[in-house]
Design a protein around this nucleic acid. Structure first.
Length: 276
DNA sequence: ATGGGTACCTGTCTGC
DNA sequence: TGCAGACAGGTACCCA
């Protein structure tokens, strides 16, 4: 489910409310991708700071008596979502983590359990450091532009869509938004990365930024079950032009949208509008 | 370093 | 109705 827009929309929907709250209890459900990495009792009475986002990860800083106490790194995997509510229902079979605070309970629900909640001594050490090192630039940073993209892509021979999904050039574009951005830029997702001109890289960088920004504005994509921490659904999927639309007419030229598989993931594109 | 494949896990939908 | 198989928003890790 969650690509950068869903993670950012989730963050925005509870950041103000959890900032400054005190941890009262922690409940663990079934194992997630990694163990929590700290004894739960060590987290009690910690103060939660303002949640930050890096790529598709969220970082919840913690402190005790104004002293830095590391933080929690969260990832929603394929099927995760967070809720932040004052009176949570009894945990269901897919509710695997509750952070009970003075301001409400942050609950991770994740049927497939590809998600993660891990404690690290800081955002750039421990497991958090290891996971975040090697991530590409943030798409909304000034640093991310056509030149950066061109310089990175010219060294790759993989298909451009696979390179975008990799997250080591630019973070945040998952399967939906990579497809949509390539459509917006008019680039064939199967095109070899190193053969894309500087000019087209500029268009692609712009398309990635705009696609992700628009998705944040629309509250993300709710294909089946995404909700932000307030329980609101997203609406970007209503505006998707190729993702999930195999066989349907391209909204620009009417040619049927094609589906191919790249790196074991479905890719959707218009064979007429998108060129190598 | 890069590229390709596998693995993690559960739910839903399709076709026989 | 049952059942096998495909597919799903991600990414770490292993191997060539």
């Amino acid at each position: 489910m969650p690509e950068l827009p869903e993670v950012e929309v989730t963050r925005l929907s509870f950041a103000d409310r959890i900032d400054g709250a005190v941890v009262r209890a922690v409940r663990l459900g079934k194992p997630l991708r990694w163990p929590l990495g700290i004894d739960v009792i060590e987290l009690l009475r910690s103060h939660v700071g303002a949640p930050r986002r890096r790529g598709k990860y969220l970082w919840l800083p913690l402190s005790r008596r104004s002293v830095d106490a590391g933080g929690l790194l969260l990832h929603l995997g394929m099927s995760g979502s967070l809720a932040f509510v004052s009176r949570p229902a009894a945990p269901g079979p897919h509710d695997h983590f509750d952070l009970v605070t003075s301001a409400g309970t942050l609950r991770l629900t994740d049927p497939r359990r590809f998600g993660a909640v891990v404690w690290s001594p800081s955002i750039d050490s421990g497991l958090a450091g290891k996971l975040l090192t090697g991530l590409g630039v943030e798409p909304f940073d000034d640093e991310f532009d056509g030149d950066l993209l061109w310089r990175a892509l010219r060294r790759r021979r993989s298909a451009v869509k696979v390179a975008l999904l990799g997250g080591d050039i630019v973070v945040g574009a998952g399967n939906i938004y990579a497809c949509e951005a390539l459509f917006a830029a008019g680039i064939d997702p199967r095109a070899r990365s190193h053969r894309i001109s500087r000019r087209r890289c500029a268009r692609l960088a712009q398309a990635v930024r705009e696609t992700l920004a628009q998705a944040v504005e629309l509250g993300g994509s709710t294909l089946r079950d995404f909700r932000d921490a307030r329980g609101c659904v997203g609406e970007f999927q209503l505006t998707a032009r190729v993702y999930g639309r195999a066989g349907q007419p391209c909204p620009v030229c009417g040619t049927p949208v094609r589906r191919v598989v790249q790196g074991q993931r479905s890719t959707y594109f218009c064979p007429s509008c998108q060129r190598s």
